[in-house]
Design a protein around this nucleic acid. Structure first.
Length: 955
RNA sequence: GGGUCUGUAGCUCAGCUGGUUAGAGCACACGCUUGAUAAGCGUGGGGUCGCUGGUUCAAUUCCAGCCAGACCCA
């Protein structure tokens, strides 16, 4: 045996199988496999079944195309909400859903198999749509799963499931029964190429070049006009309207003026006497290339009721007042065709104007239409303009380019066309005020969501729920042939139909005759419309619970005073139904869900509604293929791993735009490594620690360990609060800062000496391990909602019983160890000051490691007392070889003054140690070389190696 | 054009009801360590708080306008 002893084996270095390299992209799929194989979701639901419920209702993505980063963000945020709610002690079912009907799927199927009636009949076409949607759901489901989203993937809800569709018809039955459904003729976006109306979401705005014409509507009674303008003579006077849709002139029913706008009667040399808005006269004169003499003035209000001659239809139309009349462009007088414009329709209703619509579904004018009878709308404009010119009614013509609605499929300009449609009326049974009240009782996160949806509901027109499509849930009602009104037993019949659909699917309706339902075929016909797909998803609150075997939440109870926070008046104090979607859904799903539920029973469908922003690139631009800034979630999971994507999703304040780029993701990977390594270090030092036998009681813990646990407790409260506010970026920042600053930069760094050099089973080491164990127990839960894969991996590596899943746990109860007599904040401030002084020595080349130095602190008063409490052990705090404490007066020449944040000052003198370095603990101590047996060790190391072990009290 | 928002260091975020030299972390630079080592520690530089006015003794924080961006609607 050599006389040189090897002390390395007496050092307790961290050891753990938990790898430093996560290799997430490669390993996550294996974990997923074991989650699925072990029926993790079902097991957790079972383990947590006794808890109060927390419903997160999944807004169904549309079953078409692969998921993009926006889908990923949305589902991950939902998953974080669910997982954190479980930690908070709730039972949280998370059932994913898909929106399966609608036009985009029809288009995909058309592309593959042709239009309905070409190669496939409607029934076969629907079957193909169903197959297509099924494939899409399967694809999207795999991508969502890959993100680590813990949900009931084996039992999703589908809007095309017969049980869902049946329940949807029952919902419609109730809404009809409550008197909300009305039939109307309304102008809707109409695609001349589809030959059908379009949903709002199917409309795209693009630039279009249009004729812009000024048209004269001759005054019908010039004496009346003269009187209104206070002039003697108005012979030849004409109202001038401006329009960019000349084809709508055949349907003109009025000229609209602004109530408070001032109009002038002017005389143009060639055009004659014209009536236009005073403010716009200058521009008009420029347009006509002539000067005009003002003859008289009148407000719009004074013109109401005047009569004008339609330029070619041979009828007189009234001058009416409309709030939509502006002075932005034109003449201040607006051509009004109720059949071809929403505002025109609305104002027309006030004045009881006819909604006569001369345009047929084919896009051709009816034969009876003056001037352009039988012609196609697209070919009608030039003849109309020519005729106007000929009759002298055309004051001006030009072309302009403006933003105009287009069909998203054909990219062709749309028209507005009044068509018979079914509506959920905002007024018929008081839906609007009820909905506005329901909004007030709902928690909107962020708070401004309330104002946003309130403004939308306040102004929105009736909800058109009828569509002329093939792939959808039928508007299964019967209509009287003569009057085109609903069968009086519609609500009851719908229930009957729903039961058949439940059993046999939708074809039970499509293939049926009225007689099959006991309806008189001579008098009633089947409505062949489908329901708007927004109605499908809008009744998820009714359908999915039933279709998936859950008891539906009691919406009345959710909306009752018992569930209301008396301070805020908001529902959800006891029981929660949570919706979480992108901010576009204020107009979309939040909106449709609200209207549908309120129409059914007057209650909001949710207690909490959270919205997030959209993803943009690092320069704040939206993602687009042409910009090449698209980040695909599939690519991220394949390269960096889902936990990196999840960490990114959590790191950003989602209330605004959420930026993503490869660079940002790389940053997240760096942050991830830091968190992972912190966990790994904790695990490594728990080597040999069995909580069942080695745990140190709280009151015996060393002071610094108790302090560390207090910090962890304080942080846990902050993290819980942040999860509760759903401010996940706060969780991320707090967690990361904790790992970097509190643990890495302080506690764990200082702790190393004790962990490594004290005896394995000593109180000194067990105390540290106890604290680290609790910190790890707490931390694995903090990160579980976000870094789910990593949390599971840590969970498995932690000592103790791990038979349950980390996702079924509640927050870790950290031991209440009580305050310590050490003033840690002061000590931390002094530590910072010492580090600066040491850095000066380092830069000067006098020391390398801090252990090369010894420090003398010169302080008085409370600060001196605070330091003296810890005394000798301060050297561990600063990670230096020695620390001495003296009064200010005794400071040497080279001492450096330091001022603490609180204003206290002290002097710090640091110098390189002259003593030999202990081979074992690396402290430079005078005792090294003094001991015969262990000449290379310091005193405490000798005790640790050969004796009873050193005693630590504080650090 | 209307509704609802957003704009603090290169990046992600703090800055409560207006009040001393605007804070973190990351990134960056320079060191240390080699017993968390494809790790860890320390020190340091970096912001006219979107712009312009206004209120105030005092504004990143209140008001108005403007600019840029997002979602929704027209």
């Amino acid at each position: 045996m050599s006389d040189k002893k090897d002390y390395k084996p007496t050092i307790n270095l961290p050891e753990t199988p938990f790898p430093m390299q996560a290799n997430l992209a490669k390993r996550e799929p294996d974990w997923l496999g074991s989650w699925e194989g072990g029926g993790l979701y079902a097991r957790i639901q079972q383990d947590t079944s006794g808890r109060p419920p927390f419903w997160l209702v999944d807004g169904p993505p549309y079953a078409n195309g692969d998921i993009h980063i926006g889908h990923a963000v949305n589902k991950v945020l939902k998953d974080i909400v669910c997982k954190s709610a479980r930690l908070e002690g709730f039972h949280v079912p998370f059932v994913p859903g898909w929106d399966c009907h609608g036009l985009p799927i029809e288009l995909q199927v058309e592309k593959k198999f042709g239009k309905v009636g070409e190669k496939l009949d409607a029934r076969e076409f629907r079957q193909k749509c169903r197959e297509y949607a099924t494939e899409q759901v399967a694809r999207q489901r795999e991508d969502f799963k890959r993100l680590g989203v813990l949900a009931d993937w084996d039992h999703p809800y589908l809007t095309m499931a017969p049980s869902f569709e049946a329940e949807q018809l029952r919902a419609l039955s109730r809404i009809i029964d409550n008197g909300h459904v009305v039939r109307g003729f309304k102008p809707v976006h109409w695609c001349l190429d589809c030959g059908s109306s379009l949903a709002e979401a199917e409309v795209e705005y693009e630039d279009k070049k249009s004729f812009a014409i000024d048209v004269k509507f001759a005054a019908a009674d010039v004496a009346d006009i003269a009187r209104r303008f206070g002039v003697a003579d108005a012979v030849g006077a004409a109202f001038v309207i401006w329009t960019t849709t000349p084809w709508t002139l055949p349907a003109n029913q009025a000229v609209a003026a602004g109530k408070d706008i001032e109009y002038v009667l002017v005389d143009f040399p060639e055009q004659g006497r014209l009536i236009v808005a005073a403010q716009l006269l200058e521009g008009i004169a420029k347009r006509y290339g002539a000067e005009a003499a003002v003859l008289g003035r009148a407000t719009g209000a004074a013109l109401e009721g005047a009569r004008a001659q339609h330029p070619f239809a041979g009828r007189q139309v009234p001058v009416i007042l409309g709030e939509h009349v502006t002075l932005d462009a034109g003449t201040g007088l607006v051509h009004t065709a109720p059949a071809h414009g929403v505002e025109d329709y609305v104002v027309g209703k006030l004045y009881n104007l006819p909604v006569d619509n001369p345009v047929q579904s084919s896009g051709k004018f009816t034969d009876a239409t003056p001037l352009v009878g039988g012609q196609h709308v697209r070919k009608a404009e030039e003849p109309i303009i020519a005729a106007l010119r000929e009759s002298g009614a055309l004051a001006h013509v030009t072309q302009i380019t403006h933003s105009y609605p287009h069909c998203w499929r054909h990219k062709t300009p749309l028209i507005f066309r009044a068509t018979p449609q079914w509506f959920i009326s905002m007024e018929a049974a008081g839906l609007r005020p009820k909905a506005l009240e329901a909004i007030r009782r709902t928690n909107w996160i962020p708070g401004w969501g309330e104002a946003r949806i309130h403004e939308m509901i306040k102004d929105r027109p009736d909800w058109c729920i009828s569509r002329q499509r093939t792939w959808g849930v039928p508007l299964a009602v019967f209509v009287e042939r003569q009057t085109q009104s609903l069968h009086p037993d519609s609500a009851a019949l719908l229930l009957q139909i729903a039961d058949r659909v439940d059993a046999d699917g939708l074809e039970a309706w499509w293939g049926s005759t009225p007689a099959a339902w006991g309806v008189d075929e001579a008098r009633y016909e089947k409505c062949t419309d489908t329901l708007d797909v927004w109605f499908d998803s809008g009744v998820v609150h009714q359908c999915f619970f039933k279709s998936n075997g859950f008891t539906r939440p009691d919406y009345a109870a959710l909306d009752s005073a018992a569930n209301r926070d008396p301070a805020t008046g908001k529902n959800g104090a006891q029981s929660t139904v949570f919706y979480l979607e992108g901010s576009d859904q204020h107009r979309g799903w939040f909106h449709s869900s609200l209207l549908a539920r309120v129409a059914m029973d007057g209650h909001p469908p949710y207690t909490h509604v959270l919205t997030h922003g959209f993803t943009v690139d690092e320069q704040g631009r939206k993602m687009s293929k042409s910009l090449g800034n698209v980040v695909a979630p599939q690519q991220v999971t394949k390269t960096l791993g889902a936990d990196i994507l999840r960490l990114w999703a959590s790191s950003s304040d989602y209330s605004g735009e959420i930026a993503i780029s490869d660079k940002l993701l790389q940053r997240m990977a760096d942050a991830y490594r830091r968190i992972r390594n912190t966990a790994r270090y904790l695990l490594g030092n728990l080597n040999g620690f069995d909580p069942a036998t080695d745990m140190v009681p709280a009151e015996q813990l060393l002071a610094m360990d108790r302090w560390a646990l207090q910090q962890a407790e304080a942080l846990q409260q902050e993290i819980r609060a942040a999860y509760g506010r759903r401010e996940f970026h706060q969780v991320y920042h707090k967690l990361h800062n904790y790992c970097v600053v509190d643990l890495g930069g302080l506690y764990l760094d200082v702790l190393k000496d004790r962990l490594y050099t004290s005896q394995p089973k000593s109180l000194a080491r067990r105390s540290a391990q106890t604290a680290m164990f609790h910190i790890a127990e707490a931390m694995v839960r903090w990160i579980a909602p976000i870094l789910s894969f990593t949390a599971d991996e840590i969970w498995a590596a932690l000592p103790g019983d791990r038979s349950g899943s980390v996702f079924a746990q509640t927050w870790h109860a950290l031991p209440q160890s009580g305050a310590t007599e050490v003033d840690w904040l002061r000590l931390a401030a002094v530590r910072e000051a010492v580090k600066k002084v040491l850095e000066d020595l380092r830069v000067g080349g006098q020391i390398g490691s801090g252990l090369n130095a010894e420090v003398a602190l010169h302080a008085d008063g409370e600060l001196a007392t605070a330091l003296a409490t810890v005394g000798e052990e301060l050297r561990f705090w600063f990670i230096t070889s020695a620390v001495t404490l003296q009064g200010m007066a005794a400071r040497p020449q080279d001492a450096v003054e330091a001022t603490l944040p609180g204003g206290e000052t002290l002097w710090i003198a640091a110098k390189a140690s002259a003593h030999a370095k202990c081979e074992r603990c690396w402290h430079q101590r005078p005792e090294v070389g003094q001991h015969a047996e262990h000449p290379t060790l310091c005193e405490r190391c000798i005790v640790n190696v050969d004796g009873a072990g050193e005693t630590r009290r504080y650090i």
